[in-house]
Design a protein around this nucleic acid. Structure first.
Lengths: 131, 131
DNA sequence: CTTACTGTATTAGGTACCTAATACACAGAG
DNA sequence: CTCTGTGTATTAGGTACCTAATACAGTAAG
C-alpha cells in the first residue's frame, strides 16, 4: 500500500493519515472502496494497531473515511478535500521546509525543482503499478 | 537571525542546526564570523540553552563551526558542505516528503513547483534584508 | 584577583509518541 | 449460538525530546 519512513520526524500516525489521503487524491482508493482493517494494516506496516486506529479515527473525523462498526472501514462516498485556505497553508509550510533543507545542504532552486519533479513521477508511478 | 517553527515535527535542535547551515550556505554567516553565544541564541529563540548547545555541538562535529573554549563559537574557516552523496540523499528525501504532502492535499506538480519558487524567494529575501 | 562572559556537563521532571496486552461491543458466516 | 473479524477503549512501560536548575573549566577585561 505505502511505507512508513522511520527517518521522517513526523509521527507514524500522521504518515499513515497522509498516505491514505494521498491514495484517495490519486484515485487509487475510490469512494466506497474498503481500506485494510486496523489490524491488517498494522501488521503490513509492522506497526502497533493503536497507531493505525489513531490515523483512521482522524481520517473519519476529517470526512475521508466512513466506518461501519463491526464490519469495516471504507472511503467516504464524497471524500472531503481540504479547503483552499488550509490546502494553501499546508502547501506553503511544506514548501518552506523543503526550501530550507535544500538551501541548507547547498542546493539551488533548479536542483530542488528537478528533484521535486522526480519525486512526483516516482510517487505517481508507484501507485499506477498496482491499481 | 531565524525562527523556530513549532508546527514542524522536526526537533528544535535540528531546526537550529539547519538554520545555521542555511545562513552559512547563503553567505549571511561568513567564515570566521562569530555566532551568537549559546545563552544569547537560546534567549532570542525562547528556547532552552541545552537545546542550542546540542545544535552547536553537532555543527562543530560536522565542521561547520569551530569553538574557542571560554571565548565563543565561530564559523569554521572552511565550512564543510555535505558531500554530493549525502546532499543528494537528503534532497531526495525532502523532495519525497514535500511531494507526498502536496499530493495528499490535492495539489499538482505545477502548484507545488510554484510554491517552492515562492519559498525560495522568501527565504533569500529574508536574509538579504539584514546582512 | 575579581567579575563576567564563554562552552560543557549533570540531574531531574514533564510531555508526546510508540508499543504491548487486554477487554468490550458489534456484524457476519457456519 | 459459536466463531471470527470488525472498530474502539484502557492501562502500563519505554524512549526521545524539551525544560529547568545547577555546576565546572576556560578566557578576557577591569
Amino acid at each position: 500500500m505505502f511505507a512508513i519512513n522511520p527517518t521522517d520526524p513526523a509521527p507514524i500516525w500522521r504518515q499513515i493519515e497522509e498516505g491514505v489521503r494521498r491514495l484517495v487524491a490519486l484515485g487509487a482508493l475510490k469512494p466506497g472502496a474498503p481500506v485494510p482493517s486496523v489490524r491488517d494494516l498494522a501488521k503490513d506496516l509492522r506497526v502497533n494497531p493503536n497507531t493505525v486506529a489513531r490515523a483512521y479515527q482522524r481520517l473519519t473525523e476529517g470526512g475521508v473515511l466512513t466506518v461501519r462498526r463491526g464490519e469495516g472501514t471504507y472511503v467516504a462516498d464524497e471524500p472531503s478535500q481540504p479547503k483552499r485556505a488550509e490546502r494553501n497553508g499546508a502547501l506553503r509550510d511544506a514548501a518552506n521546509r523543503y526550501a530550507s533543507t535544500a538551501i541548507s545542504v547547498g542546493s539551488g532552486l533548479e536542483a530542488a525543482a528537478g528533484e521535486l519533479e522526480s519525486a512526483f513521477e516516482r510517487v505517481v508511478r508507484e501507485h499506477r503499478r498496482k491499481p
